[in-house]
Design a protein around this nucleic acid. Structure first.
Length: 424
DNA sequence: TCTGGGGTCCTAGGACCC
DNA sequence: TCTGGGGTCCTAGGACCC
């Protein structure tokens, strides 16, 4: 049976989440900032209209923010993650085939039907999500994922479409693609766009009609795949089961410069605990662990230093203290005194399923220590992150990130529940 | 003073083998 | 001056995504 893809994409997702509990902000300009209130990662339409770009540093925007009374929020991932889950659940209740592509996007696959049935159904889904969760979405439909992405963008951009657009069987597809900047095509970043422009390929239509041999050579198979998808030949299937992570990173910028090895150890231990918990959560073990530290590359007046080191474990593990020992050994080797460090992180790699791991013939039995880890995870799940943690991770964590405009965890913390009538 | 975090895939090139 | 050919595996780095 012939099928089409639909892409459901939440509109300005983080901003919409913030508005959900502050309805008076409907129609008002809003931005959401990255960790440490560093830069802009979500903008309401009003803010986009002011010319503020994704990734603009917050400190450079203070004037324009004051002038236009833009509401500022620190990112609140507990809130966004929970609302995302609710949106995805609604879609999964309606549809058997859902691919959760990112925190605010999902692909579904629908049986192909001529006429406007796709569009009618998408309008129904859109209403359903709005009604059940309160988050506005746009839906694009096409014969391939890449064309569904194109359609989604057009659904949002052109008000007449009302947030739903089907590009399958569209009579004007040539015209639509000819007015679609090649850099806005899914999978074409600015490097590829530069190469394409150099050859006079400026629009999605040009890319669709470009020469395969040249594309393969300059943009590798991924670029060729994108062109095929624009031709309506589906190369990217719907992926419904989420594959295990092949690498797990935990890394954050510091709230203030870190200048001592002991603070750095606290940070690395804290990040490692987070990564190891994720690792256990997917039932895996890691074979190697990388530690990295860096100064602030945006401050050219300070001496710069960045270094990473990968350690291979004698045998794969998900045991936090074992991983930590290897991480600290690496850290001690790469750490240099006299620098103002801005960021550090750990990356777990060579990940494999725990159940495939071979027990060591002579080494210690790992079952007991993993039971301890399971208990730690359970406690932290129930009572909150870092309720039980490694001593090395520190207690004050004075280097921790700063979030000065954070909204409450309205939906995930009893103590932060919103109050309906306000008469308290 | 202040510029995010977490992922995937692909390729080139080196090391090594016969 | 001239110095094989072919294959695999691993890693670093680039590019992309949200």
């Amino acid at each position: 049976m012939k099928k089409v893809f639909a892409l459901i994409d939440c509109n300005n997702f983080y901003c919409s989440c913030e508005r959900l509990f502050r309805p008076e902000l409907e129609g008002q300009p809003i931005v959401v900032l990255s960790n440490n209130d560093g830069c802009v990662i979500a903008r309401s339409n009003e803010v986009k209209a002011l010319g503020i770009k994704m990734g603009d540093p917050y400190f450079k925007l203070k004037d324009i923010i004051a002038k236009h009374r833009i509401q500022v929020f620190s990112s609140n991932y507990a809130l966004y993650g929970d609302l995302s889950h609710r949106v995805m659940t609604i879609l999964q209740q309606q549809e058997p085939e859902v691919e959760v592509y990112s925190i605010d996007e999902a692909f579904i696959s629908l049986p192909y039907t001529p006429g406007k049935l796709h569009t009618d159904y998408a309008r129904y889904l859109k209403r359903k999500v709005k009604q059940c969760v309160g988050i506005p979405v746009a839906i694009g439909i096409g014969p391939t994922k890449t064309l569904a992405k194109v359609a989604n963008r057009l659904a949002k951009k052109i008000p007449d479409h009302g947030g739903v657009f089907d590009i399958t069987d569209h009579g004007q597809i040539d015209h639509l693609l000819a007015n679609y900047d090649v850099e806005d095509v899914w999978g074409i970043g600015c490097q590829s766009a530069n190469k394409l422009r150099g050859r006079g390929i400026l629009t999605a239509r040009d890319l669709r009609d470009a020469d395969d041999v040249w594309l393969r050579k300059k943009l590798t198979v991924t670029g060729l795949r994108t062109a095929m998808e624009l031709r309506g030949i589906s190369c990217l299937p719907l992926e419904m089961v989420q594959a295990d992570k092949k690498s797990i990173i935990s890394s954050k910028s510091f709230g203030r410069p870190v200048t001592t090895l002991s603070d750095m150890k606290e940070a690395v231990a804290t990040y490692l605990s987070t990564a190891a918990e994720k690792l256990r959560n997917q039932g895996s073990v890691a074979g190697s662990i990388q530690v990295f530290v860096t100064t602030n590359p945006f401050n050219p007046n300070q001496p710069q230093y960045a270094k990473s080191m990968t350690a291979t474990l004698p045998r794969p593990s998900a045991h936090t203290p074992t991983l930590l020992k290897a991480a600290v050994r690496s850290l001690e080797q790469i750490y240099r005194a006299g620098f103002q460090y801005k960021k550090a992180g750990v990356m777990l790699t060579d990940i494999s399923p725990h159940h495939l791991q071979q027990e060591s013939l002579f080494g210690p039995n790992t079952t007991e220590s993993m039971e301890l880890m399971a208990a730690v995870d359970q406690i932290n799940k129930k009572w909150g992150r870092h309720t039980v943690q490694l001593g090395t991770a520190g207690f004050e964590k004075s280097w921790q990130m700063v979030q000065s405009h954070k909204s409450p965890a309205y939906t995930t913390s009893w103590s932060e529940l919103p109050i309906a009538n306000g008469a308290v």
